[in-house]
Design a protein around this nucleic acid. Sequence first.
DNA 1: AGCACA
Length: 454
Amino acid sequence: MASVSSQQQFRYTQPPSKVLHLRNLPWECTEEELIELGKPFGKVVNTKCNVGSNRNQAFIEFTDLNQAIAMISYYASSSEPAQVRGKTVYLQYSNRQEIVHNKTAADVAGNVLLVTIEGEDAHLVSIDVLHLVFSAFGFVHKITTFEKTAGFQALIQFSDAETATSAKDALDGRSIPRYLLSEQVGPCTLKITYSGHTDLTVKFQSHRSRDYTNPYLPVAQSAIEGGGQVMVGLDGKRLEAESNVLLASIENMQYAVTLDVLHTVFSTFGPIQKIAMFDKNGALQALIQYPDTQTAVVAKEALEGHCIYDGGFCKLHLSYSRHTDLSIKVNNDRSRDYTVPITPVVNLQPSILGQPVPMVGAPAQQYNGSQYTPVSDPAMTPQPQAGWGAAPPAVAQSMPLQMYNNVYMPPGNMPPQMSPGNMPPQMPPGMQFPNHSMLQPTSTLPAYGFDRTQ
DNA sequence: AGCACA
């Protein structure tokens, strides 16, 4: 009968062994703490910690049996129980005679983490939320997600094992902060081990996989329109599929919006690779291509709904384009490829346009974030409003990165309680952000607030 | 709080 063998297994006295089984240990008890505990009784030659589904069990092995017996008998009659970090630890002889280290992929530190998301609604955790959470520790190269018997899992690829380890140490066993999840999603706890993988294969940007190193990767249809999983943003609202290319439509266009004006405005957030302008239903639209999605995301969030000129003129509406790389056939006053160092400029006569054309043929490399290209003769064209027009400043120079840092990269080895000093992102002077801006939650965003369940 | 690849 099963009850007999379990009786056997759990009977109070195990046959002596130089290996002791410890349980009820505090979370992530270290090897050092186990050695300390055994020291008074003998030499601990081997340990194995974080054992069991709750990772709160361990084994210690003494050089010889007498030392193990000494420890067991001491605590059997002691009024003070064995303790680690003030927590009572229960000891007994192990049913094995030696510790065997079964080093699996999960134990050997690597740059890819296997993350199991536990909870009723684990599958509702979006890849974007995972990206945000793990980006706190360093650049996340790729993420793949999948459903296994273990539940909803993700593989998160970092540059190196050190970064992966810092993320694992900080997040393992913690829950995704409530404010990153939409209301109806229950608690989601992360259980993290190393994966044996070193480089994930991501064929498409989709709702289940992302490659953040390759903005040119095609976007799977599933990522754009309800591919089963709704992508949920920080505010719990639906997210569009992000892209490195923004589609801008310009409303109330009282003043001419030129290629250069757009270049100036959008350059604030990072180098621009290409711009293409065209008319759609009588309104002006433009596609603006950044080298990466992150920059486009920052630009979109910062500029959406804002006007290029004071007085509500030339209001920008931004969305993500399905394009990842624009094909610019010719450089003219409506389209330009800034990545090609020298290209003939067709149909573009500065005298005709009535303004200097400073960025013509300028290679993208010239962008350094501080170069501001003034827009022309104030008599002819109204100046873009203060926020964008006035020589942006050191603030703007570092802004895109700065903002990025604030959103995704809290200080390196973050302690759970984090530095309270994270400031909200700095904006160029004069710029006002609407309430719905995703940038706003930034100050409270980074990984503090993770709760340890149990 | 109960024995180590889930």
